[in-house]
Design a protein around this nucleic acid. Structure first.
Lengths: 223, 223, 223, 223
DNA sequence: GATGAATGAGTATTCATTCAT
DNA sequence: AATGAATGAATACTCATTCAT
């Protein structure tokens, strides 16, 4: 089981640590059986806790599902943001973010599976993690590299492309070609012609920011 | 409750009629509570039957969910196909089909809701109804109006755009603008530039095939 | 366990028989642990059924508690009414009914305990069984032997005396003296002087209708 | 929340103060949800304390329920006793006490509700508060104004009338007529004729001791 | 004494599924 | 084929109680 959020809260107080362990366990269970089919008992058992403990930290399954996906999405978004520190071009940021987001979610399979599972339950555009995407697109608009109005509908359509691609790839191995197509599709939705999209992708990849092997997150795991 | 499939099977043998009634009831219940939260008891109760009867016709909820969505999707696709009889251009067929599909699913709310609910559970591209879409795209390719390779990934991305749009619109009223954007996005995925996509949409709409009011299916209902 | 209502429904259809068995079991459990502390599992276990069966017949514990007490109270009231067939005087009927009701509830301990337990949860005056009491008092008023207005408050106060007496006596053995005091107290509430009340009681007892040993109901039981 | 017993223990040591606060909170919760449905967590939360604190002061819910009702009943009885200082006639004391007890319990609704709720769980005659009643009746017997034997059964029957009346009145507004009927009924149980009872009540009320508005206890409250 | 996180037994309730009629 | 009573495993959630800090 991956123990990212438990590890993250080492040094925190006991309450936060327990909560972190529960989220780790929830992610593990959710990724195995899907959120819908997971039971609270499985989560606490995986965490080695009494079932009652769950309710000291979460209201119900929806609550922990939301907390888990937010934790994952924010963690990914935060790491992406760090790595894109010196990337000024909004369009490039969109490409790198989309590409890397999927890469990371694929590298950390459980994370990817949970994101997909949760996506099937709720629209995703209002997730706080998606604010990064909105910001990058907005930046590109300001820089006059894109000409779109950024509204919820656009974001939902982009999210749909990303999550569908993620879902499709989770079954098999990482396929760079599909990743590229997804990013190009996003750029097309944003108003670029297919040709422009392909060029932008090529341009960005020259910066080596899209190396699939470099984009994984260090995730502690055991068994 | 809408009684489309029950009505449809009038004249058939009793077995088919019972099955049709169960599918009608399932659609009604699914659309109200979502497939996940619906129970077999609710379906049979809605159909005015004993719960045991269900198992004479379906294996389990997945079975009836699949049957219901296939029935809906095929029904819509069939009607579309009829109306596009004299439409030769593959690209136009794609636009009209996408547009009308969503229109119909919005007009017959329960149908739309069930389709969305089922889409959240399974990828949709392999649905037999989607074969029509594959055919139309292929036709456009053959006619040298599009230049794409038609694979499952492309179809899934298109489906994602359509279902996301449908889901977003089901909450509110029909908004022609969102419909148009969705269709343009699909054309963009198929390799058109934004400008070409917009023009194609304008061209097709001149044929009055996209009149939202004209695209409804006759659906018998009671109460 | 006493099996009165199960026995009663022999010959009825299966559904009624099962329901009768559940009521019998509920009475048994309620009388042992009190309604508040009884669990649905205990009831179905006592009936030798699956817990799910309970919910085919009752909504929840309140439902079965109400059904049980109504069944008991009506059964007692019905038997009383039969035995008082040739008793014309309303006052006498009140005395005999009060006396016998308590006697029967004491003889069939579980019944008495359940009645007391339920009385602690809800006012009792609106119970359909109490309509008999209202009728007898009304009759006495019509016969000009009592001069009171019969309202819910009066009935509640009378019920309080009866149930309190029943509760007090359930712990120990039957004590004729307490029974007599209770009945006299009821007559006093109804407007009689203590002397009149005592005389009325003496008068009625001459008719041998108050023989404690004669007032039991035949109750089938096993183990 | 009323804070009578917390206030009362100001100046005492910390332990007594904490205990007082818990009792105040318990009364508040009990009166809202009934004793049966109240949880220890709710009580400590209402008191702004950790749940563990409860067990430093009480064994369990029964314990705090008993303590709460005894505190309430004794407080009322004590105040009554003070006000009846110069009332020599036992019969009058019984009337004033009964009347005022109900009045106070109605004015301080939470107190009344808790008393009723606890009464439904245990016989009340052995409550130390009821010793006052026993004393007053005994006094009347000694003064040769009543001729009864004062035993637990009599006290229980009187308590039943009082608590039933209280329960009935708690739902609606104060109704002097019902109060009077209750007191008359008590006197009847004590051996008076209806006429004597009515006269006694009239006599006592001339002393203005039964003014409903004058009989309230000063209860500190906040929020 | 106070805290509050953790516990885990207990309970109601749902629901897919079976099967005798 | 249809019925519908019975089943019993599964699961969410509560809450009194403990105990280390």
């Amino acid at each position: 089981m991956q123990t990212y959020f438990r590890t993250q809260s080492i040094g925190s107080n006991k309450r936060a640590r327990t909560r972190g362990m529960l989220i780790d366990s929830a992610i593990e269970v959710f990724s195995t059986k899907g959120i819908e089919d997971a039971s609270i008992n499985e989560i606490t058992a995986m965490a080695g806790m009494a079932n009652g403990t769950f309710y000291n930290h979460f209201k119900d399954k929806d609550d922990v599902a939301y907390a888990s996906t937010e934790a994952i999405a924010l963690e990914i978004a935060k790491q992406l943001n760090d790595r894109m520190n010196d990337l000024d071009q909004g369009v490039s940021r969109v490409v790198v973010a989309s590409w890397s987001f999927i890469c990371i979610a694929l590298a950390a399979r459980p994370w990817g599976r949970v994101l997909v599972s949760q996506y099937q339950r709720r629209p995703v555009a209002e997730s706080s993690a998606f604010e990064y995407m909105r910001g990058d697109i907005q930046r590109a608009v300001t820089q006059r590299n894109l000409d779109v109005t950024v509204d919820w509908f656009l974001l939902e359509q982009i999210a749909a492309l990303m999550m569908t691609a993620l879902r499709g790839m989770l079954g098999g191995e990482l396929r760079t070609e599909l990743l590229a197509r997804t990013c190009e599709n996003i750029l097309r939705l944003l108003g670029m012609t297919p040709l422009q999209a392909k060029r932008e992708l090529a341009r960005v990849s020259r910066h080596a920011l899209l190396d699939p092997n470099a984009s994984g997150v260090a995730i502690s795991s055991e068994i």
